[in-house]
Design a protein around this nucleic acid. Structure first.
Lengths: 142, 142
DNA sequence: TATTGTTATACTCTATAACTATA
DNA sequence: TATAGTTATAGAGTATAACAATA
């Protein structure tokens, strides 16, 4: 690929990603929890993460930013904080029953719009998108 | 595809999109202008758009939101506002020379990180991503 | 009355700097 | 001294509601 091509490719990827991201954000079906908050709940439930630092690192945001998100979740009763007995600088963050329920319910309902949109694609388009998902993840985690 | 599969697919697409989007935002090389602002400059230069409403519609955000972005660009000297002589409710937004220069320079430099990352992919991964870009755009514009 | 743009206000997400408590 | 978490503060991006000017 020439330099010009690879620059154009990068621009295309960036613009397509931002547009889709903004569209998805606007279309979320469940308003009780934001995307960032839901990602934290998912990391707690599936990712086996437990401390603020781990959560911040996994989402690649700063600790103060993650702290604010966790504060929102805690105020809403979806997570609890408990000091770690072994290293008392650490704080364990855990899902409450409400948090677990919200996660499950939200995951069921939230992507209705996107599912619909994906359902309107041709088989080939769906396949193309599916093949790109792991690549997007790889680039994001670089 | 089963209901479960299509739900999982939607979730994968959403999460991969958000992660990549956040990573790209964090990695931008040029700090004088944000992504949203750059998109407006690009729409003015390439898209042939001129009024606030057109810009808001093309980015699928509300007029007050676009107004704020345009305010930032105007304060920074990258665009001007001129009342439209033919319909005085309208305001024409135009690039200044500084705005045009910033656009060109920024587009040259900004995707260096992403280009690098894409260069590290295998040929197959690059092809997969390239094939997905128009699909992402289609879904975003739905 | 309808349309275009604007202001006021508010909320989320993100950051950096500075602080506390613990190791 | 170094690490984990927190608070204070600030800025960007988004929204809705209410308003002004013009058609």
């Amino acid at each position: 690929m020439s330099d010009d091509d690879s620059a154009a490719f990068a621009r295309d990827v960036r613009m397509a990603t931002f547009r889709l991201s903004r569209r998805l954000r606007a279309q979320r079906a469940v308003d009780t929890v934001t995307d960032s908050q839901l990602a934290v709940l998912a990391a707690l439930l599936y990712g086996g993460l437990r401390t603020l630092g781990e959560l911040a690192e996994s989402e690649r945001i700063t600790a103060p930013s993650m702290n604010r998100t966790v504060n929102c979740l805690e105020e809403a009763g979806y997570v609890t904080r408990t000091p770690d007995a072994e290293d008392r600088r650490r704080v364990l963050i855990e899902l409450t029953d409400d948090g677990r329920r919200l996660m499950e319910e939200t995951q069921r309902r939230r992507d209705a719009w996107l599912e619909d949109a994906l359902g309107e694609l041709s088989e080939g388009e769906r396949t193309a998108l599916m093949a790109a998902v792991p690549v997007m993840r790889k680039v994001a985690e670089r």
